[in-house]
Write a protein that binds this DNA or RNA. Structure first.
Lengths: 132, 132
DNA sequence: TTCCTTAGTTACCAAAAGGTACCCACTTAC
DNA sequence: GTAAGTGGGTACCTTTTGGTAACTAAGGAA
């Protein structure tokens, strides 16, 4: 039965049923790429502010360390969601931007942002401990 | 100057500029609530499959342990994104569902899912190490 | 009588995440 | 002569995360 369903689902993928034979849900790799601690935040900055240099990102993400930022950026680059452009001047100059693939997340990011603004307006916050 | 901007921004929040005096970006609390390891996955299951019992969730999320699942569910509940309904029969029966607030994420989740399906169709995957 | 069920909780332990400090390169400014 | 500035890399050390195993409760089945 599962074999038959797999065939069927390929085309319509999860319109009502799961499209994931465990580990095959299309959401899995995407969420895996995006669920890191600051990852979505970085993507959102690049989406809303345009290409940014390393230092600018670090400034705009309050609590992050250089090590973390580097790590996340490397991860996003490896996932193909952002690009890294180096101008090898003497103080180096490295700019990050959404890649073409990353740009396909714009709608989803905007959707999140819209909700975020609404909830902020409603005074919604996490009392410490949620998901922490 | 920052004080004045704070006043201005409250109403229009990040239409083009950042609305985040560091730590005040509306995206921050939302992303914080949602960026845990399995969190978005759980939300997506509840969105696409409807209310689910603990055991059903555990089955559908391949590598997760009971401890992790409990922890994430508690976090989402604390954040007000899901509800927890207990029927205190002798083998207990606990059902989780999106809360009203959580339901506001539907559009964003659907957006992510749409992208996820597209990328799956294109054969996109993370070669190990990305964001890990 | 003993086991199985569900949805956890707790204690214990290993592994990973993440912070801090220190290093580099080269040019300019003091 | 030396400090600053950019975008990191590396080592060291602590904190957090997450897995595993054992325990719980009330009743029904074997």
């Amino acid at each position: 039965m599962n074999d038959m369903m797999d065939q069927e689902i390929k085309g319509r993928a999860a319109s009502k049923n799961l499209a994931h034979t465990p580990g095959q849900c299309p959401m899995d790799p995407l969420l895996r790429a995006v669920s890191g601690r600051w990852t979505l935040y970085i993507l959102w900055l690049l989406r809303s502010e345009g290409p940014q240099r390393f230092g600018a990102l670090k400034t705009q993400i309050p609590g992050i360390s250089a090590k973390m930022l580097t790590e996340r950026l490397r991860g996003l680059e490896a996932a193909g969601l952002i690009t890294r452009e180096v101008v090898p001047t003497i103080p180096p100059q490295v700019t990050y931007a959404m890649s073409c693939r990353g740009a396909e997340l714009h709608r989803a990011l905007d959707g999140l942002h819209q909700v975020a603004e609404k909830w902020q307006g409603e005074g919604w916050t996490l009392e410490a401990g949620a998901t922490e």
